[in-house]
Each structure stands twice: as structure tokens, then as C-alpha cells.
């Protein structure tokens, strides 16, 4: 059975040239029947067909703005497809934007709880994990402080510790995380590896070819919202690098 199936998925969204629409403008435009010049349609993903089987580790590469993060958010269910179907079997854990979403007035301890609840845990199951999470974060007595006073590095540590505390079924990762200082990064990498090996399916976006090669058994190359190539990691990386050089040469000339 496939953990993830995308059938002919496209995602378009509308972006406003300036600011948000006001009801006043909306009604005025509606009454006067003038064209909505304020709106640009972005075709973020186009006709993506993708299947991720149980046990697969899929990597996504592509230029900035190719739609990688959008694809991840679609897989995680945050973005709905404009057309086509998305089927995901299993609980999704996503690791992106993890340093967002804190209650700033609440202590680190409380925030650990909120995030765990958000991931579907109960007070009892969090109690069992609380100390392990705190220990992994190495934040010590800082956890008693409101999160408002945390540095960004501390926030990432906290977020990472919570987000990786439960074993995911389907793991979706944006960039192999660079969390905190050197020693923490090493630790985070070890935990990431173990998560990746225990998850039933993994989708990871990265610019780091080496880690993609190590982690993934298949790669997808996204180009301007299109699925340009999918296949064995070495082949895809080679093709991707070749095209980058091809793009670069005319510019240098």
C-alpha cells in the first residue's frame, strides 16, 4: 500500500499585489464590475503525480521557488490541492516552520505541553515524556521562563525536542534542520536519523546533495511547479547539477 498518493495534483493560489482586500473595495469592484487587477495567480504546483510507498525515503530537490515547500505543505495537509487528489494513509508528522507557534507568555514547560497536545497527545502521555523532552532540549531551568525571553536558538531546540519526541508514521521534513549550536546539531542529526529509519515513509526537502544521497532511495526534481524528473538519487542529482551548469554557462559567457 502506498503511504502517499498524489494524482494529477495542481495547486494555484492568488496573491494580492498590495495588501489585503477590504470589504469596501470588494463591494465597489463588484458593483462597478471592474476587473480585479490586484490579484496575481501563482501556479505553484502543476499536474504532480507522485506515489510514496511504505518504507520509502523520498527526497525533493529544486531551485528556490520551485515549489518544494509548497509540495511539503500539501503533503502535510496544510494546503488543499486546487485540483487532483491527495491520499495519505497514516499519521503525518511535519517538521517545518517549527520555530513558529509558541505561546510567548507561557513557560517552556507549558509550551511543550501545548505542542504535544497539538500532535494529539493526552496529558498522561505528555507527563510520561516531559522529562525526556526537557532533557533533550538541554534548556534546564530556562524552561521555567516565559518563551518570550528565549533566543531563536533556544526556540529551535525546544521545538525540535518536542516535534521529534513521538515516533511518526509519515515524516515530512523541510531542510535537514540546523538546530542550535554545534553540539546540539550533532545530537539533532542522530535523532533525525533514528526518526527517519523508524518512520514508515519519509519525504525530505534539502539543498544538501550529500544528505539527500545518504537518506533517500528516490529523488524528485521539481522545476517551476512541474515534476521534472523522478528516479534513483545519483541519476537525479547528476541531471540536476548538469542543468544548473547549463543555466550558468550562458550567463558567464
Amino acid at each position: 500500500m502506498n503511504a502517499i498518493e498524489l494524482n494529477d495534483v495542481s495547486l494555484h493560489f492568488r496573491v494580492r499585489r498590495h495588501g489585503r482586500t477590504s470589504l469596501k473595495d470588494y463591494l465597489l469592484h463588484g458593483l462597478l464590475r471592474r476587473g480585479e487587477s490586484n490579484i496575481i495567480e501563482v501556479k505553484a504546483l502543476q499536474q504532480i503525480d507522485l506515489k510514496v510507498a511504505q518504507g520509502e525515503r523520498l527526497g525533493i530537490l529544486g531551485h528556490n521557488g520551485a515549489g518544494k515547500s509548497t509540495l511539503l505543505k500539501l503533503l502535510a495537509g496544510v494546503y488543499p490541492p486546487t485540483s487532483g487528489t491527495r491520499r495519505v494513509t497514516g499519521r503525518v508528522s511535519s517538521l517545518f516552520d517549527i520555530s513558529l507557534g509558541f505561546e510567548h507568555e507561557a513557560s517552556g514547560w507549558d509550551n511543550i505541553r501545548y505542542r504535544s497536545y497539538l500532535q494529539g497527545e493526552t496529558p498522561r502521555s505528555v507527563d510520561a515524556r516531559l522529562n525526556a523532552i526537557a532533557e533533550f532540549s538541554e534548556l534546564g531551568e530556562h524552561l521555567d521562563m516565559p518563551v518570550r525571553y528565549y533566543s531563536s536558538g533556544m526556540l529551535v531546540r525546544l521545538a525540535f525536542s518536542v516535534a521529534t519526541a513521538i515516533e511518526p508514521e509519515i515524516l515530512i521534513i523541510d531542510e535537514v534542520l540546523s538546530a542550535g549550536d554545534h553540539s546540539f546539531q550533532a545530537k539533532a542529526r542522530v535523532r533525525m536519523r533514528s526518526l527517519i529509519s523508524s518512520a514508515q515513509a519519509v519525504v525530505v526537502v534539502s539543498h544538501d546533495m550529500d544528505s539527500l544521497r545518504q537518506i533517500c532511495n528516490r529523488l524528485v526534481w521539481l522545476d517551476h511547479g512541474h515534476l521534472r524528473m523522478i528516479g534513483e538519487p545519483n541519476e537525479v542529482i547528476a541531471a540536476y547539477l548538469r542543468s544548473m551548469q547549463g543555466d550558468a554557462q550562458p550567463m558567464a559567457a
Binding site: 505543505k73 502535510a76 496544510v78 511535519s94 516552520d97 513558529l100 507557534g101 497539538l118
Partner: peptide, 9 residues
């Protein structure tokens, strides 16, 4: 917002 951007609930 930041919860909405990360989780589908």
C-alpha cells in the same frame, strides 16, 4: 496563524 500553517486541524 502559526499553528494553522503547520497543522491541519
Amino acid at each position: 496563524e502559526s499553528y494553522i500553517r503547520q497543522h491541519r486541524i
